[in-house]
Design a protein around this nucleic acid. Structure first.
Length: 694
DNA sequence: CACCCAAACTTTTTT
DNA sequence: AGTTTGGGTG
């Protein structure tokens, strides 16, 4: 078939030459597309999502069934977007041609973790797993580590044992990198090296505990999927379900993920991966840039490589700066981004006195831009660490500027939400000791020891909650205890409808919040919000699984959470800004210590990743880019005496070659002896408040 | 044994 | 600034 004739028209005419090559790669047969492995190197802003969506649409148009396409993405949001766009493009074409069967969505589109969880529920029995497993998030996994490290009495040693989240991190690195504990400690956690034996023992206990309690952590979803595929028959069964496997953000896959792909597609047939090595920023989560660099060579004949370099997002001066930054990094896929849009002005490097002036400067610039017609939602402030925006947030609240913050503290991580979910999880799975422990300690008078004994009693009675009705607790609120055991019995009853379960949980939990939190009315609102969300799920298992795999982004206690159609400024960590774009972008704290982060120094590979992080931040900007550099900035490190400010050196990434593309500016009085404007405002504010007291 | 308080310690980014 | 541990009290 001469697909050029057939396809050049219709939905594919908007693609440029490389995008078109990528989208239509492969030999078209009757209802099939035969294609070897292909790697699409998609630079920032080169229409990656559009290309991948069009490739999927191409497959659908050629007659590949939607349920035979596996789309693996980095986030749920990306999965949804990709599915929608692909289906729309295909529908546009198909309805014009024959009006025949138009797929509504891609059945198998999701993150590695969510697809893994789905496959494991199907194949659980064949690998000796109970399909009713509970998925636990990073926090739960850390809590379980905490319980075990106390049980093993590692916390009683003279030197302090690594904190619970560090233990969980180390374990996760070992699994995801498929590397021995000793090597992980050597390269990533040298300060924990003395605890090697204890950590190994802790991890053995952790694995046992998870198995006993029927829990899977994030890493288990990948690990068990891989094990599933290591069995030839099962691998074939999974593999034969799909004609095509497409992987987005391939540069951020880890050893487990690439191994799973290799097992599913040993010869690479029907495998399409998309990514940009220059945007690999998840090494801390065990991502391997090497995966994308070595992808072509892992097959014989090697995979086809198609490079997209035409940039549709930014103006040329921004790309010149980004290209210059990246040119100083040694890497395999050289690319020079070219702008489609003409004109544009040079990116700026602004020096300010401290984080206070930084916040003030941004607020001023954002408001000026809005007056000139750029909505707040077209502007974003990006930063390295979640807390870097603290100062700015205070300023924004004070000046009544609405904003949404991505990254940082999440809804699901707040204590009250975890409490409520733990009650639900415990009801769903009485063996879940972490959840039970957490819930029991909520009752005044019940501490770790009593909670532990109560859990033992439950275990001794075959994990039936009715055993609690005869069980008296020595001290502790009698009434709350009785109500809790009642609630748990109802929750564990299989005939109990899902509808209304969260309401029952909230009714029991409300007094606990009122007791513990001053802001309980705000937190109660969060639980009510959770209740609303729960209505969208068919059953409890689905709700709990989806919520851990795809947590809601924003936390409700933001000062008046902006409604979606309102105008608001976007604050985001660079990691959470991936794939997004704004007309106007500010990058905070561009100094050595943040770019690169002080903890990343000493290791060349990690420094390169930090450079790429700055690259990702820069390439989010469409029209205007401002890098801000405070001369003095706040460090939350232990400060022995007095001043917690530190003088930040200029980022080592801003070399003379890179500086050529930056317009240098200073804001405010850099050497200040006098009190500056913003400080005076703060004093005024305090005076007003003092006066209003009487 | 639970709870409160003080002291010591702390590695960022997230599915 | 937030977390974790240890000591003292009821």
């Amino acid at each position: 078939m001469r697909r050029d004739d057939a396809m050049a028209r219709g939905p594919f005419e908007t693609l440029n030459e490389q995008q078109y090559q990528a989208a239509t790669f492969g030999q078209v047969g009757r209802g099939t597309v035969e294609s070897g492995p292909v790697l699409i190197i998609a630079g920032a802003g080169t229409g990656k999502t559009m290309t991948l969506a069009h490739r999927t649409a191409f497959l659908l148009i050629q007659g590949v069934a939607a349920e035979r396409i596996l789309m693996l993405t980095f986030s749920r949001r990306a999965a949804r977007e990709m599915s929608e766009r692909a289906v729309n493009v295909a529908a546009m074409h198909l309805s014009r041609k024959r009006g025949g069967s138009v797929p509504v969505k891609l059945d198998w589109s999701g993150t590695f973790h969510s697809v893994g969880s789905r496959l494991l529920r199907i194949y659980a029995r064949s690998i000796g797993l109970d399909p009713g497993f509970t998925i636990i998030d990073q926090g739960d996994s850390a809590d379980l580590m905490d319980l075990l490290r106390h049980e093993l009495e590692f916390t009683r040693e003279e030197r302090r044992f690594p904190r619970k989240s560090t233990c969980a991190d180390i374990y996760s690195q070992c699994v995801n990198r498929q590397t021995a504990l000793e090597d992980i400690l050597d390269t990533h956690y040298p300060w924990c090296i003395d605890w090697k034996d204890e950590l190994a023992e802790l991890f053995r206990a952790y694995v046992k505990a998870k198995q006993y309690q029927n829990l899977l952590d994030y890493d288990d979803l990948l690990l068990h999927w891989m094990w599933l595929c290591e069995n030839r028959e099962l691998a074939d069964a999974v593999s034969m379900q799909f004609d095509h496997i497409l992987v987005d953000e391939y540069q951020d896959t880890n050893a487990l993920q690439s191994r799973i792909l290799t097992l599913l597609r040993p010869n690479g047939k029907g495998l399409t991966v998309v990514g940009d090595d220059a945007q690999s920023i998840y090494a801390f989560r065990a991502a391997e840039v090497e995966n994308i660099l070595q992808f072509p060579g892992t097959f014989t004949p090697p995979a086809e490589v198609i490079s997209l370099e035409q940039n549709y997002r930014s103006c040329q001066p921004i790309l010149d700066l980004s290209n210059a930054l990246l040119a100083e990094s040694p890497r395999a896929y050289r690319k020079t981004l070219r702008a489609e849009k003409p004109g544009g002005c040079a990116p700026q490097l602004i020096s300010v006195e401290s984080d206070l002036e930084q916040a003030e400067y941004i607020v001023g610039q954002v408001l000026t831009a809005r007056e000139s017609g750029i909505d707040l939602r077209d502007q974003a402030v990006l930063f390295r660490n979640g807390h870097h925006s603290d100062r700015l947030e205070i300023e924004l609240v004070r000046r009544d500027i609405p904003y949404v913050k991505y990254g940082g503290l999440k809804f699901l991580e707040s204590a009250h939400v975890k409490d409520a979910l733990s009650i639900l999880r415990w009801g769903a799975n009485p063996k879940n000791r972490v959840a039970g422990f957490r819930v029991l300690k909520l009752i005044p008078g019940i501490g770790p020891a009593l909670a532990s004994r109560t859990l033992d009693h439950l275990a001794a009675n075959d994990y039936t909650f009715s055993a609690f009705s005869a069980y008296r607790i020595t001290h502790g609120e009698e009434e709350m205890w009785v109500e809790l055991s009642d609630l748990l019995r109802r929750l564990s009853d299989k005939d109990q409808p899902w509808n209304g379960q969260l309401e029952q949980v909230r009714k029991w939990y409300q007094p606990v919040m009122e007791l513990n939190y001053n802001d309980h009315y705000i937190r109660n609102g969060d639980i009510e919000q959770l209740e609303m969300i729960s209505g969208q799920y068919a059953n409890r298992e689905q709700f709990l699984a989806e919520l851990t795999l795809d947590p809601p982004v924003a936390c409700g206690d933001l000062a008046g959470m902006p409604h979606l159609d309102d105008d608001f400024l976007v604050l985001s960590t660079i990691h959470s800004a991936k794939g997004q774009e704004w007309r106007n972008v500010f990058v905070l704290n561009v100094n050595d210590g943040n770019f690169p982060n002080e903890f990343a120094c000493g290791d060349d590979k990690r420094i390169e990743e930090e450079r790429r992080l700055l690259y990702v931040a820069m390439t989010r900007a469409k029209e205007s880019l401002s890098l801000i550099r405070p001369l003095k900035y706040w460090v939350p490190e232990q400060a022995k005496h007095g001043d917690k400010h530190v003088y930040g050196a200029k980022s080592r990434f801003l070399t003379p070659t890179v500086m050529k593309h930056l317009a240098v500016k200073a804001y405010g009085k850099i050497h200040s002896g006098k009190i500056n404007i913003s400080k005076r405002k703060e004093i005024m504010n305090v005076r007003d408040r003092a006066a209003s007291m009487f």
